[in-house]
Design a protein around this nucleic acid. Structure first.
Lengths: 213, 213
DNA sequence: ATCGACAATGAACGATCGTTCACTTAAACA
DNA sequence: TGTTTAAGTGAACGATCGTTCATTGTCGAT
């Protein structure tokens, strides 16, 4: 029987791989139907795995979605960490700070970080009351390393430029600007221009810190 | 029988009132359980009305949610229209433009416009793939009167200040800033400060348009 | 070669889903 | 007052939900 043979092959693969397949399939289903339309049957169909698999690897459907949220957050953090590691750690000069902000803009709107899948899923999870219990950093960007980083850059640049206003507020403005542009991408993924988004960030930074952007 | 008497009283009220009650109850359920946790049973419990009511007034549960999204969008638009009607229509001088932007900031973060209910529901609807088919202006703010208004203010102010950069991009920056601050409110409704949000908008506007904020 | 150990399966289950519709009740009108 | 009209009701329905668990298949150890 063909299905028996296929099943035998499938069973050879690693157990952890099945976890990944399920997480990936779940993400695809949420992408198409939203969290409210995500069912075991659809995940089963999307993944090609058996029905009992979900409760075997994850204890429940809700837990699967929860773990997906954690999984994707870590993926986002990793992507951003790889960016931050290749730049100078200490931000001493305003030139360094400006360069790091510029690099941050480019990273945050790169295809790897911001795409239709990541945006849709981010907004889907953000809307689920249950997932907000995961704690800070899972459904929003406040209180994250990213925020700390922007803050330190703004402090250096505010001092260098004599910018009026609390550096903390300037940092918050830039963070919010990024959030808002993500929202724009989510609403209009086809019309969105990454270059334009980076440029909007640049002119905003230049308005705050003349001479450095 | 007490329930019979109560039912008799209830039936006296206007039919349209029942529609409102159902919409309001649905909003409350979404607030607590998200769209994925919104069921007929819960709406019935929250509203105190009978089960068949939902399909009598709205044809289906999905349609009820759809009409709620439209209802709330109109409420938001009305709130904003009442703001825009009491200010000078034509934006000729940069002082006018600055005053109107300031008033817009105050309005957008007022208790009437931005509150836990409106924010939660906005983000809930935004995450539903089906509701994005409603068209522009229902799940986001691009292409709305609001956007046009900000754009015209920015054009006048850019010219007056000799601000570098496309006025359209500056307008987009300010729109995105508002969106991002809404997101911050949604994530941290208790810690959020309306005054701080307005101040962040002000220092950003001042950075773009020195001398007017 | 035999035997646990454990991943994988999918039929079956009870619960709950959204919807229907025969029926009741109140208001409007003659 | 009797009759017509329409709003309101909720038991019942079939569909689908998430979960369970007896069974099967596979592999490593003995």
């Amino acid at each position: 029987m063909a299905s028996a043979e296929a099943a035998r092959k499938k069973r050879k693969v690693d157990k952890d791989l099945h976890r990944e397949v399920l997480l990936d399939a779940t993400a695809s289903v949420i992408l198409k139907h939203g969290v409210s339309g995500t069912t075991i049957s659809r995940i089963q169909e999307e993944s090609g795995l058996s029905r009992g698999m979900i409760n075997l690897h994850f204890q429940s459907k809700d837990n699967l979605i929860r773990e997906l949220a954690i999984h994707l957050t870590q993926a986002y953090n990793d992507a951003w960490q790889s960016f931050t590691s290749q730049a100078p750690q200490a931000v001493s000069t305003p030139e360094d700070a400006a360069a790091r902000l510029q690099a941050l803009f480019a990273t945050d709107f790169s295809e790897d970080v911001l795409n239709e899948r990541s945006a849709r899923l981010t907004f889907a999870f953000r809307a689920e009351p249950d997932l907000q219990a995961l704690g800070p950093g899972y459904t929003e960007t406040r209180g994250t390393d990213l925020h700390d980083h922007v803050r330190s850059c703004c402090q250096v640049l505010c001092e260098a430029c004599g910018t009026q206003g609390d550096p903390e507020r300037v940092a918050m403005a830039i963070m919010s600007l990024l959030e808002g542009l993500w929202t724009d991408f989510h609403a209009h993924p086809r019309e969105f221009s990454r270059e334009n988004a980076v440029e909007i960030c640049r002119i905003t930074a230049r308005a705050f810190f003349p001479g450095y952007f």
